[in-house]
Write a protein that binds this DNA or RNA. Structure first.
Lengths: 109, 109
DNA sequence: CTTTTATGCAACCATATGGTTGCTGATTAA
DNA sequence: TTAATCAGCAACCATATGGTTGCATAAAAG
């Protein structure tokens, strides 16, 4: 897996597509699903779906398993959590900064 | 502001670039900063920085204010929180699914 | 008033991205 | 065994993206 800690950009980029977000949402029900299944309701070709899944796998958002002739995909919630953590840190730093500003203002005579 | 609730894809796409993540991190200290300031340490042209800031503003991640001849940018933590919320929901749905699976397995004779 | 500073606008360029189609190979079903 | 299903590979295409340069404008500083 790539180093997402120091470069979450690729991870967010993988999330930055409506089709891929849909796939993730669909996979978040916990079920393993094949490429054909995942593409059933989508208005794009199977190959397009496969490419999207490749992108998701390349950043570790999904894991693939072969079973016979089909390939099953499952969500990797740890990677979702990594993205969440980055945003949480930004929010926390923001809150800290505002807190310090408030303290400074209140300490003025 | 665009409707991010039903289409967080554009929001994640805006986060999907290392330069923009750097800008966000830099802005998370709470200080308003100009385009020139934000681009000081970056190895790209001022126009490139301005374009990145346009992207961030177009999804509501930053807000711009004009002061004299310069334009100041400030982080919009509410939008960061929106992205975080989407990821949280995916995680929660995943946890629910696993919980139901566990209950089902344990209820088997 | 002249110069510097900070930004905006527009054209341009190379590459990435999201999509397609056609063909091939392997596995399951009839 | 033959037919249907699921996936992989490769080429191709249009548009988006991230970057550049050159010139213009407005405000602050000298």
């Amino acid at each position: 897996m790539l180093n997402l800690e120091e470069s979450p950009a690729r991870l967010f980029a993988a999330l930055g597509d409506a089709t891929r977000l849909g796939l993730i949402k669909r996979l978040s029900n916990g079920a393993e699903q094949s490429i054909a299944q995942l593409g059933e309701e989508l208005p794009i070709s199977r190959q397009a779906v496969a490419k999207h899944l490749d992108v998701l796998q390349s950043v570790g958002l999904v894991r693939r398993t072969r079973r016979g002739r089909e390939v099953l995909f499952v969500l990797e919630p740890k990677t979702v959590a990594q993205a969440r953590r980055w945003l949480t840190q930004v929010s926390a730093q923001w809150d800290d900064a505002l807190g310090r500003l408030k303290m400074f203002v209140e300490s003025q005579p």
